[in-house]
């Protein structure tokens, strides 16, 4: 088990290097070290000497991928790519254009992101699965078909509409909750309710449909027929057999996103003024701050890969057929 996890972590290294390569290329395609120096030194009266000095000071004077002047291994290691990647691998994200420490920013903003994303995730999971089970129990009836029509309609509306409509209805017209903002602790609940509810609702359509199809696929399996032949009631068949087997495909889809919850939701946070990582990213995109975007890309990939590893581990816990 331990060796397996270790191997998975090692396997993640080439993937992260790949991710770095992609971001590095995107980054330097438009943003040469000269441009960076010019921006950092301020636009006025920048002499080439100043740029050179700035580059040497920060280590940006090296070539991108291959250093012909160095010897041996250093031909590869003494390059910008290796320098930048190794910084990222140490989670050293550097400073943003606004000259703030990105690492500190990220640390501070993870909490608010999680405060929205985690409740949304959990409530959505429970509601979607229970509704799906209900529909599977009543499959083929009017309830099932109507619910499916409603689900398709919910799916067909852009999430932006839900947010805007929710804000107008609940905040602007009815004044039930504040329109946006964030506070720490219990105080913050009134800010959180609306985004969480909207998040759950907008995912309801596709979620219920997905879980329902998983359960329906299970219900046509032979072992379900065996369970019925044993004299189990339909409800019991659903809960003790179908749900257990359905958990496996659900795990693949669900566990992988758990770590990514830290990243927050871009749209939701920016609409509701939540100071989380999602709005941080959006602001960075609007301000074209590449350093932050790069940091977020790397962080996102790391979290995704952690999610993959967690998925594999959860498989070994829930599926007796999988042995490590």
């Amino acid at each position: 088990m331990f060796i397996y996890i270790l191997r998975r972590i090692l396997y993640a290294v080439p993937i992260l290097i790949g991710v770095n390569l992609i971001t590095f290329m995107l980054f330097f395609m438009v943003n040469s070290p000269d441009d960076m120096a010019r921006v950092q030194l301020g636009a006025k009266q920048v002499t080439p000497q100043m740029i050179e000095a700035w580059k040497v000071e920060r280590g940006y004077d090296k070539p991108l991928f291959y250093n012909a002047e160095a010897s041996g291994v250093e031909k590869v290691t003494k390059t910008l790519f290796v320098q930048e990647s190794s910084k990222l691998f140490r989670f050293d994200f550097g400073r943003s254009d606004a000259n703030r420490d990105i690492k500190e920013d990220i640390k501070a903003r993870m909490g608010p992101s999680l405060a929205i994303a985690l409740p949304t995730f959990l409530i959505a999971l429970v509601t979607n699965i229970s509704l799906a089970l209900l529909l599977v129990l009543f499959r083929g009836t009017v309830l099932d078909t109507t619910a499916m029509v409603i689900a398709v309609m919910i799916m067909s509306v852009s999430g932006l509409f839900y947010i805007i409509a929710g804000q107008v209805l609940f905040s602007k017209i009815w004044h039930w909750v504040p329109i946006s903002g964030y506070a720490e602790g219990w105080e913050g609940i009134r800010f959180i309710i609306l985004p969480v509810l909207i998040g759950v609702f907008s995912g309801l359509g596709s979620g219920v449909r997905w879980y329902r199809s998983i359960f329906l696929e299970q219900i046509n399996q032979d072992y379900v027929r065996t369970a019925r032949a044993k004299g189990l009631s339909e409800v019991r068949v659903l809960f003790s057999h179908v749900l257990k087997n359905g958990m496996l495909p659900i795990l693949t889809g669900v566990v992988v996103i758990i770590p990514s919850l830290f990243m927050g939701s871009l749209i939701m946070e920016s609409f509701f003024g939540i100071p989380g990582l999602g709005s941080y990213t959006i602001d960075a995109i609007h301000a074209q701050d590449f350093a932050i975007v790069k940091a977020m890309v790397f962080l996102g990939s790391v979290l995704y890969i952690v999610g993959l590893i967690l998925t594999d581990i959860s498989y070994t816990l829930f599926d007796p057929r999988v042995k490590l």
Binding site: I15, G18, I22, V30, S260, F290, V293, V297, G300, Y304
Partner: peptide, 28 residues
């Protein structure tokens, strides 16, 4: 390896990075 790498980058961010790059290029 190729598709695991690509899909490990959060979609919106990858698109954003791509579009920003393109925008800078078009501005130039």
């Amino acid at each position: 390896y190729l598709y695991t790498t690509l899909s490990s980058i959060p979609g919106v961010l990858l698109i954003a990075a791509g579009v920003l790059t393109m925008q800078v290029m078009m501005d130039q």
